[in-house]
Amino acid sequence: MSSNLKERILQTASELFYRQGIRATGVDAIVKAAGTTKMSLYHYFPSKHDLVLAHLQKSADAMRERILTGIAERAAEPKTNLLAVFDIFGELLTLDEFRGCPFINAATEASVDEEAFKQVSADFYRKFRLHLAELAAAAEAKQPDMLARQLVLLISGAIIAEQMQRDSGAMGVARHAAEILIGQACASAP
């Protein structure tokens, strides 16, 4: 029962943090929405700060799983793996509940004393970039690390553009740019 309550609190907090923002979501709102007490919340999460970090870790784990599963379901060859990532993010951007990237949102909301939020967010993108670099190396890109950095910039920029203006088609534009970059980076040397 207790692990169910802990998970319910975390799930509720994650939904509220993502939908309303971290600063705008107070502990009282989380307790009310989770149908529990502050005492129970603080038993599992000693502070709101700890709860936010758990939310970000939960989001990172879910996003990594979604990316890996999505690539496995779509990809046929190394170059296609890189483009599949754009399709996966493109699907996320069309969801009604889309409110941007939870890591970008947390990093922009973080104050000086919440440096850990920025660190968790940066860590997600660092691991994501490293994974893209592995995919780029498998696709025989000339500079896999550089290509991975370019693709992460395209994806994060498209996410922000879509957050600012829904149905902008930003991820489609980013995917098209990625096709050009991948084509150039993976072109056989003469």
Rank of each mutant, 00 (worst) to 15 (best):
M1E: 14
R8H: 09
E15I: 12
E15V: 13
F17L: 00
R23L: 09
R23N: 14
R23D: 15
R23H: 14
T25M: 03
V27I: 15
V27F: 07
D28M: 12
I30W: 10
I30F: 12
A33E: 15
A33W: 05
A34Y: 10
A34Q: 06
G35M: 10
G35D: 02
K38L: 09
M39P: 01
Y42N: 10
Y44E: 10
F45A: 01
F45S: 02
P46F: 09
H49V: 01
V52L: 07
H55T: 10
L56N: 07
K58P: 05
S59I: 06
S59A: 15
A60R: 15
D61H: 09
L68N: 09
L68Y: 14
T69I: 10
I71K: 05
A72E: 15
R74W: 01
R74T: 10
P78A: 13
P78W: 05
L82H: 05
F89R: 03
G90P: 07
E91M: 04
E91A: 15
L92Y: 06
T94L: 11
L95Q: 15
D96F: 04
F98I: 07
F98S: 03
P102L: 02
F103K: 04
I104M: 07
A106D: 01
E109W: 09
A110D: 02
S111F: 13
V112A: 14
E115N: 12
A122W: 08
D123T: 08
F124T: 01
R129P: 07
A133N: 10
E134G: 15
L135D: 00
L135P: 04
A139T: 04
A139W: 03
A139G: 09
A141L: 00
M146D: 11
M146C: 06
A148E: 02
A148H: 00
L151V: 04
L153K: 11
I155Q: 13
G157M: 06
I159R: 02
I160V: 14
I160E: 15
E162A: 03
D167A: 09
D167F: 14
S168R: 02
V173A: 15
A177V: 01
P190G: 08
